[in-house]
Amino acid sequence: MNYYVETILVYAGVDIIACLALNLQFGVSGIVNFSFIVFQAAGAYTAAVLSMPPDTASGMSFQHYVLGLQLPFPIPWLGGALVGGLLAIPVGVLLLRRLRSDYQAIALLVLSVIVNTVITNYRPLFNGAAGLSVIPPPLSERIDPYTATYQYLYVGITFVCCLLVLFVANRIVNSPYGRTLRAMREHELAASALGKNLVALKLTVFVVGGIIAGLSGAILVGFISYWAPITWLYPETIVLFAAIIVGGRGNNLGAILGGLLVPLGFEEITRFIPTGFGPPGLGPAIQWVAIGLLIIGFLWFRPKGVLPEPRRVFNEAGIEESPFMEVRAS
């Protein structure tokens, strides 16, 4: 497997995991989590500092960071997922509790920008703007990361994580709990008038999403060995939103499809622009205009996405027919 293919596969896995998490929050529950990327970053930073040696160790003196516990795999990944989930609690309690949903979205957007600003300017925590580098890849003490075996292994672990997250997401979406989340998305007031505790519902789904986002960050940072504020600017969240909107809000398969197409397409689009063509900012400009047009175009022409949320039909015995049978457009 060449490095390019490996990179594509790992990125695709990370994006799919992130999209499944965001789909639970945005697609299923209607929580517009504009600070999603912060939770991915929390997982990445945590996994990094749990696996790195202390910053006093030789060769690390060029950067400053907390912890540096050199813990073996998979503890850093579990730690990343845990911190992603823990971070969701205060954020959820503060911002999801009383605000109207559009203000929640704005508050979360602002949070995303601000957390990035703080991490950029405060060096002792995660080395500020320069970020963390030379993060040891998981299991690198046992297997040489530059071998083909390791590449297969990393892609394999990523794939297993994808399946695990899909399993969890499917259980949630296809359960009565998921149905209540969808009801909350459709009409919050009516849901609360029917005995639904909106705060608890939002908090649980926020935490679950945070855990999965944290895991995605841990997988990514183990692969690229580098993490800095510039890798998790707030527009990264918008790319994931575009993926969900294109793939189909509320549909896990849609989230996977969007996660495969949009973020990867976004990264790859610049490959097709001949180098030296146009001003230096042209590549990113085309990327962002494409993302913006995707979002606006889909919201206008096909708001339910390529794979719309399936309609749930119950058979005579009172059992819901498998939604996978009905992925057709409605």
């Binding site: 517009v32 949903s101 979205a105 900012g281 990113p284 962002w288 993302i291 979002i295």
Partner: peptide
């Protein structure tokens, strides 16, 4: 379009404008 939908549309628009400007004016 819901209020939330409008927020998403305006944020997408914001990114487009900002990046086109970035391409024209430079960083």
């Amino acid at each position: 379009t819901s209020l939330l939908g409008m927020v998403i549309v305006s944020l997408a628009t914001s990114l487009m404008i900002q990046n086109v400007l970035l391409a024209i004016a430079g960083p």
